[in-house]
Amino acid sequence: MKVNINGQDYEQELDPDMPVLWVLRDVLGLTATKYGCGIGQCGACTVLVDGQAMRSCTTKVRFVEDKQVQTIEGVSREFLHPVQKAWIDEQVPQCGYCQSGQIMSAIALLNENPEPTDGEIKSFMSGNICRCGTYPRIIKAIRKAAQND
């Protein structure tokens, strides 16, 4: 199978039903995308597929063939993305486990809706669970990133 991850093509012999998360972590060694629940409910494994937020734990690799997959490792190469900068400025993370998925979802939101209301942010981000409860800081950071885009 041929997959494109963070702008780089990889050709691997893969089971087409293997979850993208395992391809990222176990085959390619891209471990910043986290395993949370394994059933697509927590959002820790969120990546972008052709710019759309997808749960990599439940998305089979055959679905992403001939598509662009972006992980948190591919978000910034030389400078911080506005969402990453806002995350730092607003001191969003506590434990940090969910943050790569949160950031990827926030980027997808702002790609889709560059000026979301608080209600739209809450609705879009509702699939990403933060056990530390940093939701007010997440909302504030997304608003800040929207203003700086």
Rank of each mutant, 00 (worst) to 15 (best):
V92T: 02
C42I: 04
D50L: 10
M18Q: 14
V83C: 05
G38M: 06
G51C: 00
N113M: 10
Y97K: 11
C37W: 01
E65S: 14
Y35L: 11
Q12C: 12
V49R: 00
I121D: 00
F79L: 14
K85C: 10
K67V: 06
Q91V: 11
T117Q: 03
W22M: 06
A106T: 03
K144S: 05
L109W: 05
G36K: 02
G127I: 08
D9T: 10
V49E: 03
G38S: 03
K144Q: 05
M104H: 05
C45P: 05
M54L: 13
G29P: 01
R77I: 09
I72E: 02
L24K: 06
E120C: 07
Q41E: 15
S100L: 08
E120V: 04
E13L: 13
F63T: 12
D50A: 10
I39Q: 15
D149I: 11
A146P: 00
P136Q: 04
N111G: 08
A146K: 02
L80M: 15
I5C: 02
V49C: 10
C57V: 02
D149H: 15
I107W: 00
D149Y: 07
K144T: 00
T33L: 07
L14E: 05
A86S: 09
G43M: 09
W22D: 09
P136T: 01
I138S: 01
N148T: 13
T33G: 04
I88V: 15
I88E: 14
Q68D: 15
Y97I: 08
V92E: 01
T33P: 07
G38R: 05
A145Y: 01
M125N: 04
M104C: 08
R77A: 12
R62S: 09
C98G: 10
Q94E: 12
V27D: 06
E120K: 02
S123H: 15
P116M: 09
C57G: 06
